[in-house]
Amino acid sequence: MSGELWLIGCGDIFETIAAAWPAIEPDTVLHVVRLESPAAIATPFEERLAAASPQPRVFAALDQSALNFARFDVYARLRLGGRRFCTLIHPSAIVDATAKLGENVWIGAGAVIEARSSIGHNTFVGTRALVLGAAELAAHGWVGAAASVGARAKIGTHCVIGADVRIGAGVEVGRFSSIERPGHYAEPIAERTYIDALFELPVRIYGSARKQAGTAG
């Protein structure tokens, strides 16, 4: 791919991608828009891309805090503004030709994406992570370094699969969940479940985010 690409964002993943350039796309000129912090997205940043050529490709790179919502916000605003997104794959990653990758997807160094797997828009797969055969990762997700997603596993939108987490074959992880305690997970994980070292038991959200529960009793 030749031409220009505008990388916008901040944090470790942003710096990782910027540092790996130009190995990622040797013929593409990289322009960097470094935000001060994820909080900077609260103010308009679109004008910082104003100098971009008429149809520039862009890539939004922010870490996984707040269930990827900061990255989602940048991605969605630029997408609605008509920007074209690309997918970036580190040259040392192995991506099977039958895998489907959405836009604004990052595949990190040494990652392996096996056959018939799919990765939704705006999902990032970290260094040396494994996405095994026919696994499905929905949009706006994160797979940490050295994590693995088993064959035929299904990961919902906005999920975080932390570093060194292993999701078993065929396991479903509900949307808006974050699994950050390293280990093997062989059972289904309900949506809006948070497992990390801070809490000895999973944190769960009950009740609808969309409507008020009725009142009984």
């Binding site: 000895e200 038991l201 944190v203 959200i205 009950y206 609808s208 409507k211 529960a213």
Partner: peptide, 11 residues
Amino acid sequence: YDGEVITTTWT
């Protein structure tokens, strides 16, 4: 109170 509730237990 809103109907969307987050909960956990620790010892």
